[in-house]
Amino acid sequence: MIGVELVKLARRPRNWVSIVLLCALPVTVAIFVAVTHLAPPPGQGPALLSAVLSDGQLFPAAALAIVLPIFLPVAVAVVAGDSIAGEANAGMLRYLLARPVGRTKLLAAKLVALIVYVLLAVVFVAVTSYVTGRLLFGSKPAAVTSTGITTNNVVATSLSGTALTPTDILLRTAGTVAFVTVSMLGVGAIALFLSTMSDSSLGAALGALAALITSGVLVALNSASAVSPYLPTRYWLSWVDFFRQPILWRDIDRGFAIQAIYVLVFLGAAWANFASKDITS
């Protein structure tokens, strides 16, 4: 069933359009920054964007920071919200279940397809922005430095002021890709759950986004600090800890854990609701 879901995912033009749009946003930002040479000052605007003027290899991480807050979660909510409700709308849900596809199995396959979608989207953003970064901002050539570091493959500066080699950047960007992907799964699980509640894909996607916006507001609210460690968006920006030296794992670990909990809880709720639901669509 997973294979079937992946084929459906791949053969759906809408999914590719959304990924292309996701890739286009950072490219647009890159063009503006490259043309004007006006990056936001360090510590402001999307994280690391200030650093890309000096080195294009950091742009994949900056690009992820650009799509992470709104664009990516919207795409994920739409795809996840469509997973069951979309089948119901197309009239295919009854045929799939009568095939028979086990209901729990269908949910699991939908979740796997969703993970693959997010991973595809994030990897595509990273790859296109890497190419864009190299083309528009270039990469620092080998240098002997004033502080005596003579490594000829030092290319970028971490948040802690230390040097990052291309291997460092590659590994840390890979970590960011994994973290951003996992960060989206909480929203995805909420949308998937709502998708089993309603026959409207749009309703499910909007519900998940509403949950997300609520979470975002509460995270920013001081008086809600007691609950903020449990909110799905609390650790979203912690990917930036990959670019500190040493890597600060605390929030990254928590980010992974909180998403795992959200996936577990909402997938469980989706299962409880869907496994014995009357399919009347």
């Binding site: 079937v4 084929v7 045929y95 799939l96 095939r99 596809v101």
Partner: peptide, 9 residues
């Protein structure tokens, strides 16, 4: 093809 591939049995 999708329907045929879906499901158990």
């Amino acid at each position: 093809a999708l329907i045929d591939a879906a499901g158990t049995g």
